[in-house]
Amino acid sequence: MQSTELKAFVIDKVEDIKAKDVVVLDVREKSNITDYMVICTGTSNTHLRAIADNVVRAAKAAGVEPLGVEGRDSNEWVLVDLGDVVLHVMQDAVREQFQLEKLWSEV
Results as ranks from 00 to 15, higher is better:
N32E: 02
V78R: 07
I51K: 03
V56I: 15
L79P: 04
I51T: 05
N75Y: 11
S74F: 09
G68P: 10
R72K: 15
I39T: 08
A59E: 08
S31A: 14
S44I: 08
T34H: 13
R57W: 02
G42N: 03
S31G: 10
V38H: 04
D53V: 02
A59Y: 02
W77E: 13
A50M: 14
S74C: 14
W77S: 09
A61C: 05
I51M: 10
V78S: 02
R72F: 08
N75G: 15
K30W: 02
K60H: 11
L67V: 06
G68K: 14
S31Y: 08
G42H: 03
M37G: 03
G42C: 09
A59T: 12
V80C: 01
I39H: 00
R57E: 10
D53R: 12
T43R: 07
R57K: 12
V38L: 10
G63N: 03
P66D: 04
N32I: 09
D73N: 15
V38M: 08
Y36D: 07
R49I: 10
N45H: 09
A59H: 04
I51G: 01
V55P: 02
V69I: 14
W77D: 08
L67H: 13
A61Q: 10
L48P: 04
D53H: 09
T41D: 05
S44L: 05
D35N: 11
A50D: 14
G71V: 12
V56C: 01
V64T: 12
L48F: 13
S31P: 06
K60C: 09
A61W: 01
N32A: 02
N45I: 06
L67A: 11
I51F: 07
S74P: 06
